[in-house]
């Protein structure tokens, strides 16, 4: 059967153009990160990674990601269950509201948190009087990271759970299974790969967030610098190799994210073929 654009010449031209452009525009930067990081040899790379401040930044970044994931997971699952299993007034509005973080510029996200919880804000003032500091400290970084990553899990789950429908869970109810068992034994096996990918996306954004975090961090070396802020500092100090060493670590997480997506898509496709 003949289809539009099937002539060999057209095909070769379009594939060639796409591969060339994607290579220049997307692959070359990826190669450049590692080339720069190792441009002075593996020894220099290693000494940059094992630097005291880099290690502190890695530690803080891991802490933020580790705390962000369970919070976003609980919210994402609850919200997806709510909007796909029940009809109630305001359901559409709720689904629109969870997209707010996608529409808000990261810098603006950081700013609104700073205004509320900073010393001049109405909550911040009260916190200050009680000697609790959230902004310019790691709790503030955690708060804005939760804000920017909150839609990911829900966004992955909602379309899937909508498509699967609730018939299996309803059958479990008629068989007398308690709620938690239904979720664990019926729902979870159906959504596990989407759930996992939601976590992978949340993690990728949590370790890499820059704009929102840089507003609330206060940039204290060794204390409130996440890995992206740390590499910015190194880059501004003309330590390009050091900056790219940290960048390479973050790029590895990005590559892991891409691999996870490819792997999970393959599993989902297989699940659909053999239900």
């Amino acid at each position: 059967m003949q289809r539009i654009g099937d002539a060999p010449a057209v095909r070769r031209l379009l594939v060639g153009a796409a591969v060339l452009l994607a290579g220049l525009f997307l692959l070359l930067p990826l190669v450049a990160i590692f080339a720069q990081a190792f441009s002075q040899g593996i020894g220099v790379f290693w000494s940059n990674i094992s630097d005291r401040y880099t290690l502190a930044a890695i530690g803080l970044t891991l802490l933020i990601a580790t705390l962000t994931i369970p919070i976003c997971l609980a919210f994402g699952v609850a919200l997806a269950w709510l909007v796909t299993r029940f009809e109630f007034p305001g359901r559409r509005l709720l689904q629109t509201l969870i997209d707010i973080p996608f529409a808000v510029s990261p810098v603006v996200a950081g700013l609104i948190y700073l205004l509320l919880y900073g010393r001049n804000g109405w909550i911040g003032g009260w916190l200050d009087a009680h000697d609790i500091q959230l902004m310019f400290a790691w709790p503030g970084i955690l708060m804005v990271t939760v804000f920017v990553t909150s839609p990911f899990v829900a966004r992955e789950l909602i379309p899937l759970m909508q498509a699967q429908g609730s018939r299996e869970e309803e059958a479990a109810v008629t068989l007398g299974a308690p709620g938690w068992t239904i979720f664990r034994r019926v729902t979870l096996p159906n959504i596990r790969w989407a759930l996992l990918y939601g976590v992978v996306l949340t993690n990728a954004r949590a370790v890499g967030e820059f704009g929102a975090v840089s507003v609330v961090s206060g940039a204290i070396r060794g204390q409130t610098m996440t890995l992206p802020l740390h590499l910015e500092q190194l880059y501004q100090d003309y330590n390009a190799v050091g900056a790219f060493a940290s960048a390479a670590l973050l790029a590895l997480i990005a590559l892991f994210t891409l691999a996870a997506k490819a792997g999970l898509e393959w599993r989902t496709a297989r699940q659909e073929v053999t239900p």
Partner: peptide, 24 residues
């Protein structure tokens, strides 16, 4: 591979993209 590469800009932290593009 090309398909997987399409998601790179979402997966790569923006600051990493920033210093890399500036250097390139």
């Amino acid at each position: 591979l090309l398909d997987a590469l399409m998601d790179l800009p979402f997966a790569l932290p923006t600051a990493v993209a920033g210093i890399t593009l500036a250097t390139l």
